[in-house]
């Protein structure tokens, strides 16, 4: 979808929706929101709805970063500690590597 063809009001609606959907534990939707509306929020000449779009983009961005930190911390901890967690580690694994501890 080309944002240039939408009215400013539609843009705000879309951005708000992406933010709300992202609240349902879907950080990737926030990430998309940030990338998609970044230019609209910070680079386009000012217009009425821009302030609100900016708000949603910032919120989505902060949310994405928090999620990214949490996920990478978990991933790192899991990769490093899986073996020493023993049975718990195996139970949490979807695929256990063959031939490795």
């Amino acid at each position: 979808m080309d944002l240039n063809r939408l009215t400013n009001e539609k843009k705000l609606q879309l951005c708000r929706w992406y933010f709300r959907v992202g609240c349902a534990l879907l950080p990737f939707v926030w990430a998309v929101n940030v990338v998609w509306f970044f230019k609209e929020a910070f680079m386009k000449p000012p217009y009425n709805e821009q302030k609100q779009i900016k708000k949603y983009v910032i919120l989505s961005g902060v949310g994405t970063i928090i999620w990214a930190v949490l996920l990478s911390a978990w991933s790192l901890a899991f990769q490093i500690k899986r073996v020493s967690w023993g049975a718990t580690g195996d139970a949490l694994s979807f695929i256990v590597p063959l031939g490795h501890p």
């Binding site: 049975a87 063959l98 031939g99 501890p101």
Partner: peptide, 15 residues
């Protein structure tokens, strides 16, 4: 000679 199992019996039976 790739072997699937690792560590010991307890671990490989559990997996």
């Amino acid at each position: 000679s790739f072997m699937y199992a690792a560590v010991n019996t307890a671990v490989c039976l559990r997996r």
